[in-house]
Write a protein that binds this DNA or RNA. Sequence first.
DNA 1: CAATGAACATGTTGTTCATAA
DNA 2: TTATGAACAACATGTTCATTG
Lengths: 133, 133
Amino acid sequence: MVITIVQDQSSEIRGRGYLVKQRAFIKLYLLTMIERKKDYAFNYLDEMKTELHKFGYQPTHSEIYKALHELTLDGVLYRTKKIKGDPRKDFQEIVLYRFTEEGYEKAQLYKKQMKAELDRCVGLLQKAIRDNY
Amino acid sequence: MVITIVQDQSSEIRGRGYLVKQRAFIKLYLLTMIERKKDYAFNYLDEMKTELHKFGYQPTHSEIYKALHELTLDGVLYRTKKIKGDPRKDFQEIVLYRFTEEGYEKAQLYKKQMKAELDRCVGLLQKAIRDNY
DNA sequence: CAATGAACATGTTGTTCATAA
DNA sequence: TTATGAACAACATGTTCATTG
């Protein structure tokens, strides 16, 4: 008999030791923004862009959507749909995300791991600065 | 008439604004190590591993070789071959790298750009820490 | 143009294979 | 085992296309 162990790769934070992957970085922001206010993908993207463009980083919309989809698949978030604006005259549907029952706790664990990971990355970069300049 | 501008992608430092690419990170270390002592790929790899494993990063040999090949193609380095050990009884060939005529200056420019890039990355990560914790 | 999503294409990196001493 | 290199596979990410209001 062959036993196959399927590991959940989608929530992996670091690849093989270099810097934190963009997807994980985006998830961190999403979880925090969802903690603070219930909103939808397009606005989350907009907020990340305006906050981070000073640092030369402009995330793309597809990365945001993929990150939200993965967090949903991992059971951290669930989706609800809503009509944007006045439901009597507007019809634009938007997708709102909230934490599932266990989602909030999972998010806190994820954020805790990410904190360690971000610290590691800062350390690695500062080490490079020390070593090369 | 169509004018095609071919840009040298191989020496690009940042992709599209997220963190510095591993290849560029490795090149920075290589240039500094070559400044300090003439050595060969295998030892450069070894030095990077021992210096950086505390930060959870273990570069692979293929990345080192590819980085050295690119720096050679870009005219920064040139290669010389040598027999390792006593040439009368040993035959193991190793490849030594040195700066070309304009290589040293090119390397200094590259390092200068990388310094700004590393600072940007540290800033981005620290911003993420501030924003999410 | 705002909003979501998928499909597709490219880029980046790791693992494996080949060769030699 | 050290040493170099290429070929290949896998993964990560960006660009484009499709759809709706």
